[in-house]
């Protein structure tokens, strides 16, 4: 909610976006990120025009060259005549609430290309808000008619994993010599990677990394669609291996589109998205309804006069039973 600007309903952003207005798209993304009231109305209008873009997620530890890889992928996709949207997510500082978003540096040469739209997002550390706003920004790019949308995230937290999960094809990027690289990716990322990339493959240890990775992938459970995640070697800085990587992406898409896999994927995604929106909205309305009372409850728990379980039950009974007042 922007206290300075009273919310204006139906600002017509959606229709302007559909007419190709870049400024309107950028503005709506800002409203999504700032959680401005009335944004949902615009998204409702855009929704019927989404679902056409192919979404690629790229994740991996800091410093493995994700942004450079994305830059090269944009280059190639543009040569193939495809328009590209990029959402680059970087962490918000937990101390100041600020962020430096630097992924764009590597992709800036595409700034003047009308077929490319790059947006940096900070995680902002809200309750489940990160993936929601990312998904909504992706929807805007989708409605803008971008053929391919790339989401770049640092693969260290659960939120990032969730974002990648929402992609049609998830790419996990690693480099040789990270030390415990395999350790770092054990927790969940191995399962979500549809494709693995060993970037900076000219460095020592690429063979070992590939062997370890292959071993771990073989140990993992078989995927229902029979897809075996391939491992590609790239040297993004020189643009090497990118063509093969993209071919891998399209092969994965084919597998996805064949048979039941795609339907299941779409259903899973729809379920996750619906639950996420419900969760965020319930939380928002609850907190709004509680207002100042929340702090009093916190005080009661902190001073151990009451237990949090009873209070939580009381809150839920009060709000869920009477039905949350609709607003916004």
């Amino acid at each position: 909610m922007d206290r300075g600007n009273p919310p204006v309903k139906g600002r017509g952003l959606a229709s302007r976006i559909l007419q190709g207005d870049i400024k309107a798209a950028s503005r709506l993304m800002r409203d999504i990120d700032d959680e401005v009231e009335g944004t949902v109305e615009e998204l409702k209008l855009l929704y019927p025009r989404t679902g056409n873009a192919y979404v690629i997620g790229i994740t991996g530890p800091p410093g493995v060259g994700k942004s450079t890889l994305v830059d090269r992928m944009i280059e190639l996709l543009r040569k193939e005549g495809k328009t590209v949207g990029v959402v680059a997510v970087d962490p918000t500082s937990p101390f100041s609430g600020g962020a430096i978003l630097g992924d764009r540096i590597r992709m800036q040469r595409h700034s003047t290309d009308d077929g490319v739209f790059i947006r940096s997002l900070a995680t902002r550390g809200q309750l489940g808000g990160l993936s929601r706003s990312t998904h909504d920004v992706v929807k805007v790019l989708d409605a803008m008619g971008k053929d391919v949308i790339i989401i770049e995230t640092v693969g260290v937290g659960q939120d990032e994993v969730e974002i990648a999960r929402a992609a049609d094809t998830s790419i996990v990027v690693l480099v040789p010599g990270l030390g415990d690289e395999i350790q770092a990716i054990k927790a969940g990322i191995l399962e979500i990677g549809d494709i693995f990339v060993i970037n900076k493959c000219e460095q020592e240890g690429a063979d070992r990394l590939e062997n370890e990775l292959r071993l771990m992938l073989e140990m993992g459970s078989k995927r229902p669609d029979g897809w075996v995640p391939p491992i590609y070697r790239t040297e993004a800085i020189k643009g090497e291996g990118i063509k093969e990587l993209l071919e891998g992406v399209w092969r994965h898409r084919e597998t996805l589109l064949e048979g039941e896999g795609h339907k299941r994927h779409l259903r899973e995604r729809a379920r996750a998205e619906l639950l996420e929106i419900i969760q965020a909205e319930v939380m928002r309305r609850l907190l709004e309804g509680l207002g100042e009372e929340l702090e009093r409850m916190v005080e009661e728990v902190a001073s151990r006069r009451k237990d949090p379980y009873t209070l939580a039950e009381e809150v839920l009974e009060r709000f869920l039973c009477q039905g949350t007042k609709s607003k916004g």
């Binding site: 609430g97 600020g98 800036q108 700034s111």
Partner: peptide, 15 residues
């Protein structure tokens, strides 16, 4: 850029 981040701003640096 660092200082603005520490002030709580979101800073995009383009190089």
């Amino acid at each position: 850029a660092r200082a603005l981040r520490d002030a709580g701003f979101e800073v995009i640096y383009t190089g």
